[in-house]
Amino acid sequence: MSEYVLQVEHLSKSFEKGKAVLQDVSFSVKKGEVVVIVGPSGCGKSTFLRCLNMLEPIDEGNIYLNGTVINRKDKNVSKIREKIGMVFQSYDLFPHMTIWKNILLAPKLVQKRDKQETQAQAEQLLKRVGLWEKKDAFPRQLSGGQKQRVAIVRALLMNPEVLLLDEITASLDPEMVREVLQVVLELAKEGRTMVIVTHEMEFARAVADRVIFMDQGAIVEEEKPGEFFRYPKTERAKKFLNTFHFEALEI
């Protein structure tokens, strides 16, 4: 067993020849650690997250889960994804199923877990995010924030080794952002291993054990949140962080 849950070595990827989206990215996540990736739009942070789950094929490098390389053709990709939970910007609940079925489908189908045990855990998780009464509703009957909380529960119910959150508040109305981030903060407190891509800087500062700043497909800075947000080392990071200070706007 490696002390790292996730490890990435020299990952490179391009969508078109010669145009690298990710260049020689290396990083690792320890058990219980929360790593937040920030950076300007198009810097490759979402693509990077999707590579970790093999939703995007990579050109070069290696990805390890608990010390075992996973990006090989002979590996059963579904078996690996089972252990890596992911929540998306657009929630992507299954619209034709109730909330209850949405969250129970994969544990039943993929993990073939004991029904009673899964249901008990599902009930507990839904209650925790305050959506137990919505279990028989369909996704379309829920607000964005509620849908996103269900999506988090759906991922958690698989008991993943690591949770990947890809801009999960980016399409939410401001008043709903808080209820979703609150859930994530609690998960962080109880020691969940997470890799989070977000544009919410306040949240990043609060939740992160480590912040990674990406720009143009490469990791530019890697720091403790206190350090990074107060004393960014590179010009690019300074410039990026400045865009979040609205008082700096020239009107």
Binding site: N53, L55, K79, R81, L109, V110, Q111, R154
Partner: peptide, 11 residues
Amino acid sequence: SQRESSYSLGM
């Protein structure tokens, strides 16, 4: 994204 969301659950 429906496919991806399903794949990411290990399906």
